[in-house]
Design a protein around this nucleic acid. Structure first.
Lengths: 295, 295
DNA sequence: TATCCATTAAACAATATTGAATGACCCGCT
DNA sequence: AGCGGGTCATTCAATATTGTTTAATGGATA
């Protein structure tokens, strides 16, 4: 069943020391004393017969071996946190914490607008937003519900198709007034284009749309879509934006809307076994009903 | 960083009690005494202000709330185990435990044959086989390396395409002697077909190949592919089998090999950050070089 | 160079955790 | 009905863990 011999608590202080960089800092963070934290590390090191930190008067420096364990230790922390969160609220109460994962853009541009009436209706509920682009978050227990733009493949996930978001090219009206409005795709080459930097997925996606849209053809490159959006709004050039978001911004104007438009399926995802947890169900259903009109 | 307040060790005994069904059994299993296990549960329950077990003289029965936490608690155990395993062996030693995930069929029919020379060459290495059909195992830290028949979608995974395995219809020669050899697809309907039971993915897949292959057309249904294979070998009927496996079994004979043959990409997958861990790399490379000829 | 602020390490006392032992209970079996 | 095997709860002493305090060390700063 459980074959592990090492006290799980030791991993927790291991993580804290590695993150904080010193016994003392970790101790403050964990609410323990510096000697105990030191003893925990000692204990862990003798258990695994391996040195995890280089000691110095300036703090504890993780060895390579310790660094290799960090991702897993973090996972452990995620699970613990999630476990605690789920345990602290009843299954069928409309109270507790719900953690929602989404991309930066969706999380900043759309979601906040949807929470007003929801939080009004359920005063006991707390919502946490975990923004990022990884789809791993549901698996790593970083969130209870996720808004995703790709169809989830994993089983043991409950997914509902919310609708289709369309993305297109947009630019600030002032920019277009000054630099002209492209009439055809070829006109784009003369423009300041905004797009991804080194994110392989996005670049590949862009080139798939039109081979002319290589990475080098972009004048402003940034992997943060939120920053790209702000750049658009600042009038720096032409870039990709979701139609729904652009539509709600009077300063933005569509560019070549008929020749450049691609759909993105939008999915709402949660863990299978959380289906019947009241607070999660509430958020899930609320998003399912309100999100579509924002796409 | 770590917002959890609850001692991680408590979750460990929580899991043990829920799994074992009683304080005493859990205590034996954990190497603790029955009173401490009881105190742990008490402590956990007061921490989360929720009752996790129904007490009785016959043992501790998990409440619904506790049941809802089980998957996560198990995940925690997986991570802890994996952490311990990875920590106990040096990054650049050819020693320690490597855990390999694969389907039941691959794990029973192919992999054992590949380990001989490998374990000979690396006496310090221990190999664990985690057989199952879920692709979640890498994520849930159940394994270090996985053999998968679908292209892995997650990022932060290192995947190498091993080759293409072909699957086709096969039956035992005796069966075909007695019941005749189908000459065309339509002939199949008169035969005893062996296939999946309720596994939605497999059923959908089968129907996609040929609409005639509905679930009802199957005479022996079982979700275990290994059992299907044994049924084939027992001469119970016609079923799907990987070409490589069937080729090594003289009693099996291909059925309609030209009209029914579908490819499955075979992938070797590991975590990104484990690329440089010696023992994992060794297994990965060994499989990459020996597996293709067995497909 | 002297001082201050951070760190780790060591020693000892306070505290919390644990285990052993016990009694009470329930179930199934003979 | 009585017995054996399993369970849980309680008590108290043994033990292990923790915190406090101290001293020593290194780096930054004036």
């Amino acid at each position: 069943m459980t074959r592990s011999q090492i006290d799980w608590a030791l991993w927790r202080t291991f993580l804290a020391v590695a993150d904080c960089g010193s016994l003392s800092a970790a101790a403050r963070h964990l609410g323990l004393s510096q000697p105990t934290v030191g003893r925990h590390i000692e204990q862990l090191e003798t258990s695994i017969r391996r040195r995890l930190f280089l000691r110095s008067q300036q703090g504890y420096l993780p060895t390579e071996e310790a660094a290799a364990l960090m991702t897993e230790a973090k996972d452990m922390a995620f699970v613990a946190e999630s476990l605690e969160r789920r345990a602290s609220a009843s299954t069928n109460d409309a109270s507790g914490i719900v953690r929602l994962a989404a991309s930066h853009v969706v999380g900043t541009e759309i979601l906040p607008w949807l929470f007003g009436p929801f939080m009004e209706a359920h005063p006991g509920l707390e919502v946490e937003l975990a923004l990022g682009n990884s789809n791993a978050d549901l698996f790593r227990h970083e969130a209870d519900v996720a808004v995703r733009m790709v169809r989830p493949t994993q089983d043991n996930l409950l997914a509902r198709r919310i609708g289709t978001a369309f993305a297109g090219l947009y630019a600030r009206t002032e920019y277009l007034d000054r630099h002209g409005r492209p009439k055809m795709l070829a006109d784009l080459s003369g423009h300041r284009l905004i797009g991804p930097d080194r994110d392989a997925a996005s670049i590949g996606f862009l080139e798939g749309l039109d081979p002319a849209l290589s990475r080098r053809s972009l004048r402003l490159r940034c992997d943060s879509e939120a920053a790209q959006l702000t750049a658009l709004r600042a009038g720096l050039g032409i870039g990709i934006c979701q139609r729904g978001i652009a539509a709600r911004d009077a300063s933005l104007e569509a560019v070549l809307p008929q020749s450049f438009r691609f759909p993105m399926e939008c999915w709402l995802v949660t863990h299978d076994d959380l289906r019947h947890v009241r607070r999660i169900r509430l958020l899930f259903d609320h998003l399912a009903s309100t999100l579509p009109e924002w796409l």
